[in-house]
C-alpha cells in the first residue's frame, strides 16, 4: 500500500472520477444500445462488443447524479468485473493519472452509505479531487435497484 497507482479518469457532471486502470479493458465510442424493458433504471441497455453481448450501465444514475443532457454523447468504459464484462457510461474520458497513496482520503460520513460503498474516497490532485470508484460496486445492480425502489 505504498507504491503509486494508475487510475483511468473520466468526468461525470463535471466531477472527476477514477477507476484503477487494470480494471478497464478498453474505452469504446458510444453506439446505439438495445434497451431492456423491465430492467432496473440503471441499465441503459445491451451493446454488441465484438460479438459479446455486454450490459451497459448509466454511471450517472448509479451515482445518483442528474441525468445527462440529451445533446451530450457519452463514452463507454468497458470494465472487467467479477460477474463478467460490464460497460459503464461516462460523459468524457480524462487522462491516465498516477497517484500516491498519501493523497488519498476516504469519503466523508456526510455522503450516503450507499454512495460511500461505491465512492471509496478521493485523491487530492492539484486543483481538483478525483473520486475513486470501487469498480466492482459500480458494476453491481442488486444493491442499487433496491435503493432506488425504496427511494421511489
Amino acid at each position: 500500500m505504498t507504491s503509486a497507482r494508475q487510475f483511468c479518469t473520466f468526468y461525470l457532471n463535471r466531477l472527476l472520477f477514477g477507476v484503477e486502470s487494470q480494471k478497464i479493458q478498453e474505452v469504446v465510442t458510444y453506439r446505439e444500445l438495445r434497451p431492456v424493458p423491465l430492467a432496473p433504471p440503471v441499465v441503459s441497455g445491451l451493446m454488441n462488443l465484438r460479438g459479446q453481448v455486454v450490459v451497459v450501465l448509466e454511471l450517472r444514475r448509479q451515482l445518483e447524479l442528474p441525468e445527462r443532457p440529451l445533446d451530450m454523447t457519452p463514452v463507454c468504459l468497458v470494465v472487467r468485473a467479477v460477474g463478467g464484462t460490464v460497460c459503464l457510461l461516462a460523459d468524457e474520458v480524462g487522462n491516465v493519472v498516477e497517484v500516491e497513496d498519501g493523497t488519498f482520503e476516504p469519503s466523508p460520513e456526510t455522503l450516503s452509505p450507499r454512495l460511500r460503498s461505491v465512492i471509496l474516497g478521493v485523491h487530492k490532485l492539484e486543483g481538483q479531487l478525483m473520486h475513486v470508484l470501487d469498480s466492482e460496486r459500480a458494476c453491481e445492480i442488486q444493491a442499487l435497484s433496491q435503493g432506488q425502489a425504496s427511494g421511489a
Partner: peptide, 13 residues
C-alpha cells in the same frame, strides 16, 4: 448468448 448476471433475474428473457 447468455445475459449478464445483472439481468438474469428478469424471467422474461
Amino acid at each position: 448468448k447468455p445475459l449478464s448476471q445483472h439481468l438474469k433475474n428478469i424471467s422474461v428473457y
